Amino acid sequence: MEVRALEEADLELVCRHREQMFRDAGRDEAVLQTMTAHFREWLRPRLRNRTYFGYVMTDGHDPVAGIGLMLIDWPPHPSHPASDQRGYVLNVYVEPAYRRRGLARELMQLADAEFAKRGVQYAILHATDAGRDLYAGLGWGATTEMARPITG
């Protein structure tokens, strides 16, 4: 397996991985199509200016796993009292034929190292049921976050 940094040319790969991740989690197909169209336009400039970054694992020339990372503004907080940003992990995906080989674990270790290199002291992610045990095994814990849709 080879690992490389995400590039602007990975736009469609990241979109495909994100859509498949949510499909695997049981999300509605019509919603996924709408989400991906909007995500593609959101992602394009962020890949270009590298505010969305991360890694791709390849087997030969074939991409088989990926992870997205971002830095997000966040006020100083008891979990990071001297810092005004958090790391954010998203779009962790491993192709089905490559699962159970430790690739997601390796991607998460790369994320930790990248955040540390950038001075990030605290990171968050939203886990699917499929990823929850992996993240817990790496020391990630549940938070008190709650959410709801806002309607007109």
Rank of each mutant, 00 (worst) to 15 (best):
R46W: 05
M1G: 08
Y122R: 10
G152Y: 00
P149S: 14
A136I: 00
H61Y: 05
I72Q: 14
V94G: 02
T143L: 03
A113Y: 01
A65M: 10
K117C: 07
T36M: 11
L6P: 00
A136V: 06
P75S: 09
A142K: 10
I72F: 07
P81Q: 03
Y98Q: 12
H38R: 14
P81T: 06
R148E: 00
A147R: 11
K117H: 13
A5T: 10
A130L: 10
D10I: 08
Q33M: 02
W74H: 15
M57W: 09
E106W: 06
V14L: 14
R132F: 02
M70N: 10
E95T: 04
P63S: 11
A104R: 09
G137P: 00
S83W: 06
I124H: 13
M21C: 07
T151F: 11
E12G: 04
A136C: 08
V94P: 00
Y93M: 00
I124A: 10
D62P: 07
G152T: 03
R44I: 02
D28F: 01
R27H: 14
A136S: 05
E7P: 07
Y122V: 00
R100L: 02
R18E: 07
W140L: 03
A65E: 07
D112Y: 13
P149W: 15
D59H: 14
L71E: 13
R46F: 08
A116P: 01
W74V: 12
T144R: 14
D112T: 11
D62L: 14
H38I: 01
Q33W: 06
A97T: 06
D73M: 13
L107P: 02
L110M: 15
E7H: 15
G141Y: 01
